[in-house]
Amino acid sequence: MAKLINKTKLVVDALTNSPFVGHLNCGSCNGCDIEIVAALTPRFDIERFGAVLQGTPRHCDVLLCTGPGTRQMEPRIRRLFEQMPEPKFIVAVGSCASTGHIYQETYSTCGKLDNILPVTAYIPGCPPRPEAIIDGVVKLITLARQGAKATEEEED
């Protein structure tokens, strides 16, 4: 939350009212990826909460990451994270990204996403249902709002 403190109220409002969501495949099996796409399409429709899918991480506030993070992707994941504007949040979607799941001891993965990026929220499931993904993003938004409010009161 420390990163939010220096931001103006406008930035916080923009972030929490309409988080721009990106999707990064860090070596997943597509199961979580299609559930993320399903969450965007009419049945589940994550846009109800203002979330808009962006093509590139440079436009994103929230990055939905799937997969355990492979060795070949590792430097690219770090670089993409650096390209995201502040404030930024990483959500680990799926069991692989959260814990490593079946890949935690395989030779060419980094174990779990935590080992590469600072993850803010974890959504378990193999794959998580679209409802779970929406729930995760909404919880993240709520907490960001509460955090910003607390900071504001402190400053007052």
Partner: peptide, 12 residues
């Protein structure tokens, strides 16, 4: 696999 994992981690 452990050996490969260790070598890859060192290299990274």
């Amino acid at each position: 696999a452990e050996e490969i994992r260790r070598r890859l981690a060192e290299e990274a």
